[in-house]
């Protein structure tokens, strides 16, 4: 049927149709990924991402990369292998950041009136580009998992420090030492979110003194390597193109 006669009248028209497919396909990929990555992200690392007074040097640094390397690994597994496109991680991160920023601005700020400087999301484009560039230059998933995954974990904290650092300046507040982020959390009342559900470092990594963030990032990088491996196969499975006769 369709292979015997042609649907397009010229190579030029074929190119034109192909471009339309590109743009629509990009829209579809971007927004489906935005939806599913965002729901995954907000329910596995969301609280750290919502609030400045959760962005600590231990648990945020640990949790975010580990749970967030999943989708980039899965998307890379398909679009690099089948299309040789080196932006699987970047498209995921741009998607979730789009979803987060729209919500932070139109809802956290314009519906419930939390200041933006308290509810900004985690920056991660730098991690994604690193992961994509490693895959493109090495052409190896193994190398990407080990080097890319490790870098993914290590880069979170320094890449976010320009945004988060100013909020860690100390303040003496009513006789207590608090960071600006702590004061934000105290001032801007969250009726449904009491202070105790906040999961941040409580000084239990005593042995390493001030090196909490690097140790956490290193552990996170290690876990990211393992999760990258697993999710590579998850991605391949979701890239299957089978038909089923019976459901």
């Amino acid at each position: 049927m369709s292979t015997t006669t042609s649907a397009v009248r010229s190579h030029a028209e074929a190119v034109q149709v192909s471009r339309m497919v590109d743009y629509l396909g990009l829209f579809i990929l971007f927004f489906v990924l935005t939806g599913s990555y965002h729901i995954h992200g907000m329910l596995t690392m969301g609280d750290w991402d919502f609030w400045a007074d959760w962005k600590d040097r231990r648990l945020w640094v640990t949790v975010y990369p580990i749970v967030m390397i999943t989708f980039p690994a899965a998307v890379q597994a398909v679009i690099w292998e089948r299309l040789r496109l080196p932006w699987g991680a970047t498209v995921c991160i741009l998607g979730i950041l789009f979803g987060e920023w729209v919500n932070r601005y139109f809802n956290f700020w314009m519906w419930t009136y939390f200041p933006i400087n308290f509810v900004f999301p985690t920056a991660a484009v730098h991690m994604a580009i690193f992961l994509d560039v490693v895959l493109m230059l090495s052409g190896s998933y193994l190398f990407t998992a080990v080097i890319g995954g490790l870098g993914w974990g290590l880069l979170l904290y320094p890449g976010n420090w320009p945004v988060v650092g100013p909020l860690h300046v100390p303040v003496e507040y009513n006789g207590m030492l608090m960071s600006i982020a702590d004061i934000q959390g105290y001032h801007y009342v969250r009726t449904g979110t009491p202070e105790y559900i906040r999961m941040v470092e409580k000084g239990t990594l005593r042995t390493f003194g001030k090196d909490v963030a690097p140790v956490s990032a290193f552990f996170s990088g290690f876990m990211s390597i393992l999760i990258y491996f697993m999710w590579h196969f998850v991605g391949r499975w979701f890239g299957n193109v089978r038909f089923v006769k019976r459901t």
């Binding site: 962005k55 040097r57 860690h168 100390p170 960071s179 702590d182 906040r198 941040v200 409580k202």
Partner: peptide, 8 residues
């Protein structure tokens, strides 16, 4: 000069 988040 920065400090970690305060908790406990």
């Amino acid at each position: 000069v920065t400090i970690p988040l305060q908790a406990g």
